[in-house]
């Protein structure tokens, strides 16, 4: 394969591997890794700064983790004025993940950041950490379509909708995002989870958490397979990708791009290694373009 790039709404990503939101801060901690990726998705940004949840914020289970960071972030103004200039200099595509508590906050964030040097936006309609927020938006196809349409109206850059699979069929919300004008959907965000301490009380300071890690991969892959078959826009696969083979599986199931999340907590260069591994596997398969790989799960021989 000579050209590894992937396009979303005309924006070219050098390769299909992105760092997932919330697991890569703003891409600044390991700049050399960020530069080797197709792009990075920032931590979720909200209009107002957020301190996040009290600790503990992380719980480990076999093959995964449960987190309840609670969307800690510097808020729109400080992100734009203090963080973004350095992020823009990374030499990779930067997708800003935006999160809101009112439907209007998403388009406001997109509108204000559209003047900045960003590659695109990912709407975080699915963060399960915050009491009355994300989860509700992402579970309701009508709200998904409405929020997507309003964000769409504020930018010509790619708008990606990150979908939840918590008590909702991501096929329905993916169709809603497509109808609202999304350029891609990310499938899936973390799943709800609860961990208890020995006294039977919630272990995490934020009470509930979001599950991630390799234990989620079969379910995430199942969701990608179904969503990719149901919508015409690209799917970004996410959920438990640890190596090149995992990424290849997601592309086979129909994803055009992938995001690497929890793996980066264990190996800072995990996402770059995923890309190296994926490239090698595709070369060994003799693929001449991504079209040879993407969606081959459902292709007839």
């Amino acid at each position: 394969m000579k050209n590894h790039s992937v396009r979303l709404r005309g924006v070219e990503f050098a390769n299909p591997v992105l760092a997932a939101s919330g697991t890569w801060e703003f891409g600044l901690r390991f700049k050399a890794v960020s530069a080797r990726l197709g792009g990075v998705v920032t931590k979720g940004i909200t209009v107002e700064p957020r301190a996040g949840n009290p600790g503990p914020r992380i719980f480990e289970f076999p093959g995964g983790i449960l987190n309840s960071v609670g969307l800690e972030n510097p808020g729109l103004e400080r992100f734009r004025d203090e963080v973004l200039p350095e992020v823009a200099a990374l030499g990779t595509r930067v997708i800003v993940n935006v999160a809101g508590f009112e439907p209007g906050e998403f388009d406001r964030l997109v509108g204000e950041l559209d003047r900045e040097p960003v590659a695109g936006f990912e709407l975080n309609l699915s963060c399960p950490n915050v009491g009355h927020g994300g989860a509700a938006f992402g579970q309701d196809p009508k709200l998904v379509e409405d929020i997507t349409r309003r964000a769409r109206a504020r930018t010509d850059r790619p708008v990606v909708v990150k979908l939840t699979a918590n008590f909702t069929d991501p096929v329905a919300t993916a169709r809603a995002a497509e109808a609202g004008g999304a350029d891609a959907v990310t499938v899936i965000n973390t799943l709800f989870g609860l961990a208890l301490n020995a006294n039977g009380r919630p272990f995490l300071g934020g009470r509930n958490g979001g599950m991630s890690g390799p234990a989620l991969k079969p379910f995430a892959l199942y969701c990608v397979d179904r969503v990719a078959a149901a919508v015409g826009i690209p799917v970004i696969g996410c959920g438990g990708i640890m190596d090149g083979r995992d990424a290849l599986d997601f592309l086979s199931a129909g994803a055009a791009l992938v995001q690497v999340g929890t793996a980066s907590l264990v190996e800072p260069d995990a996402a770059a290694r995923v890309w190296t591994g994926l490239r090698r596997l595709c070369r060994d398969l003799g693929a001449e373009s991504w079209a040879d790989i993407v969606g081959r799960t459902r292709r007839e021989d």
């Binding site: 390991f30 600790g55 960071v69």
Partner: peptide, 21 residues
Amino acid sequence: RMGCGTGICYCCALPRKGGGY
């Protein structure tokens, strides 16, 4: 208790006097 140990996951949080972690 930490997640990444490298500052990218925001999972180790000690409450700071005057707010924040």
